[in-house]
């Protein structure tokens, strides 16, 4: 195919986008509405996932050692644990550090009660605090830790980890479900809009086919039109979601300070780093598929 023919098809597609302005507007509005909903859900779910991830990062398992264990063995155990894939971080907590923490927690403002303890009651309670990369691996890690020679006790975080992995699974399903539903709805709506738009131009397609135009020549302007509509239809919701997200973050930061301290929200840049290509990709994909498949129905002239 000649380059001039390609440019001609592109020009016709561009012209057609403006010429059939009502069809263009209807299609852009449909894609925009679907992708706007997608963008909102994406931003909410990503923040949820981020919060769960933060909570996961704080989940730890404490490992206590047998009485009279040598320092070398404690170090060996530390090495063994830190090499596990499910472990993100291992922190050694000496008995003295543990007692200091307890004192702060239990005896703050009641220092007299603390004076009753002449020695460290947590003697022989040196431990490792083990943080997980993925809470769903909690059970496997605990079994391993219990099997290590020299380990006396393992304090599990089973309920927290189970809850967090449950939430993770639910978020995964919800995200997947919403994406599938929105995609199906948008493809249905787009296909209807394109079908109506193209049936009006069925005669135009027939004329082209009678004159001897190839399927490519007939289809190319429609596909280019579909892609243009897809790009515009994805950029509009991106801008709207960007503005809404920014405003909501500002509002939360100003009005609900305690909430922003409690929960860590993703920045607009973090959200849009992935949302922008995904949204444009979906818009282009929907526009391309919608026009490609609908024109095909009329090509058998």
């Amino acid at each position: 195919m000649k380059i001039s023919t390609l440019f001609y098809c592109m020009w016709q597609g561009l012209r057609s986008t403006f010429r059939n302005k009502w069809f263009t507007l209807a299609s852009v509005a449909t894609i925009s509405a679907c992708l706007f909903l997608f963008g909102l859900f994406y931003a909410i779910l990503m923040n949820f996932q981020h919060m769960v991830k933060n909570a996961q990062d704080g989940v730890s398992v404490t490992v206590f050692f047998d009485e009279g264990i040598s320092d070398e063995r404690v170090l060996e155990i530390g090495e063994l644990i830190s090499h596990r894939v499910e472990v993100s971080k291992v922190e050694y907590i000496s008995a003295d550090e543990a007692w200091e923490t307890v004192k702060v927690y239990y005896f703050e403002g009641n220092e007299d009660a603390e004076k009753g303890f002449l020695e460290n009651p947590l003697e022989e309670s040196d431990s490792y605090e083990v943080f997980l990369t993925d809470v769903s691996m909690h059970e496997a890690l605990v079994s391993y830790l219990k099997s290590i020679d020299g380990v006396r006790k393992v304090n599990e975080a089973a309920s927290v980890s189970n809850m967090l992995s449950g939430i993770n699974v639910i978020i995964g399903y919800v995200t997947g479900g919403i994406i599938v539903i929105l995609f199906a709805v948008s493809v249905f709506l787009i296909s209807n809009t394109v079908t109506i738009g193209i049936s009006v131009r069925k005669e135009e397609i027939q004329i082209m086919k009678y004159i001897g135009a190839t399927d490519f020549f007939v289809r190319a302007p429609f596909v280019i039109e579909g892609i243009i509509i897809g790009v515009i239809g994805s950029l509009i919701p991106l801008v709207v979601v960007y503005m809404i997200y920014n405003q909501v973050m500002l509002y939360v930061a100003e009005r609900f300070t305690y909430l922003s301290q409690l929960m860590q929200f993703l920045t607009v840049e973090e959200i849009f780093a992935n949302l922008t290509p995904v949204c444009i990709g979906l818009g282009v994909g929907i526009g391309f598929l919608g026009s490609f498949t609908t024109v095909r129905k009329h090509l058998s002239v």
Binding site: K2, S4, T5, Y8, M208, I211, G212, A213, T214, F217
Partner: peptide, 11 residues
């Protein structure tokens, strides 16, 4: 001209 464009006649 359209009839010529589809058979890629030079401009």
């Amino acid at each position: 001209a359209f009839a010529q464009r589809i058979i890629q006649v030079p401009g």
